[in-house]
Amino acid sequence: MKRFISMFMQDLILANRNGLILVTGILLIAMLALVLFLPKQLKIHNEMILDLSQGTILATYLNNQGVGEDVVFIEEQEFNQKLEKQPNKVGVIFSGDLENPVFAFLINSQIPMENINLLKASLDRAILDLRGESTATIPVRFLRGVMQTPPLNLKIIPIALVFEVVLLGFFFVSVMMFQEKQEATLRAYRVTPGGAWNYILSKNLLFIVLSIAYGLPLLLVGFGLSINYGLILLLVVMTASMMTLISLFIAVFFRNLSEWFFVGVAVLVINSLPSISYGIPSFSPAWMSWIPSYPAVFAVRDVLFNAATWVDVLPTIVLLLVLNGIGFLLAYLAIQRKLLKEG
């Protein structure tokens, strides 16, 4: 334990002298600024609704719900003019009556079907409400999803937690190993009782601590105390740990940063791809979900925005646990058999 603490302190000092803590701090401040100052929503509403029904029941209902005049129309001409100017919006024309509601969708630009369906679902709900029918038959979670898309300023937090700090960790852990190779301090380490185990865990813990130090302020500012911190930090820590282990494993096979560069960056880029799916949910090809950061980022999202519980994200936790196990094994074998045996 004394040995481990000594190594950890040393790695901490080295990380600091290499500018890692400074860079992380700057990144954190930038992200905090985004969380604080980014508007909650870029567009308040993506749809415009024209109510052509008898007595404009839907328009009245929506207005009562607090939906603004720029969304709900009863004049067809005004509706058409406004819609023409804003081709990104979805036009909805309601006709018929409560018993026989008819919705027509006017779509100018590429809008994901998912969004249309969500819109349709929320309109259906409005009709049910108007009829005075129970809404209990509709799954609550689904409605939450429809009604509350996460505010934009908070929506970036899962990206920061799953991708950014991990990127730093991945990069820096390799940099630190290359310095040790170059300075040949690894040779000195090899003639101590240090061993592979301590070497790995010390660096791993460093980046776990870093990911918490980075994630916690973001979460506190963004969500206050209203979220399940144990669960979210567990996900963050496991993601950071997994990538550190992979980074250690890969770096063993290269002599310096320039030899490592293309492979290292390729791994980083692949790992970052799921952030696209996160931003644009309709872009989720099947292979994407095989990248470990994919389930990680969506689990983080569900915990933050959809009140997901331990049980809900258990598959992801198990997956990350298994990946950490594999990552440790790979890193251990590579370091024990190669890094601490050569030259």
Binding site: R3, S6, M7, M9, Q10, L14, R17, N18, R187, T192
Partner: peptide, 22 residues
């Protein structure tokens, strides 16, 4: 070939290695 941590001070280099032994 003298192999020390260039980013650590002389003192820190020794302190770190001291910590590795039982």
């Amino acid at each position: 070939h003298p192999n020390v941590y260039g980013r650590l001070t002389g003192y820190e280099n020794l302190k770190y290695f001291a910590g590795l032994f039982d």
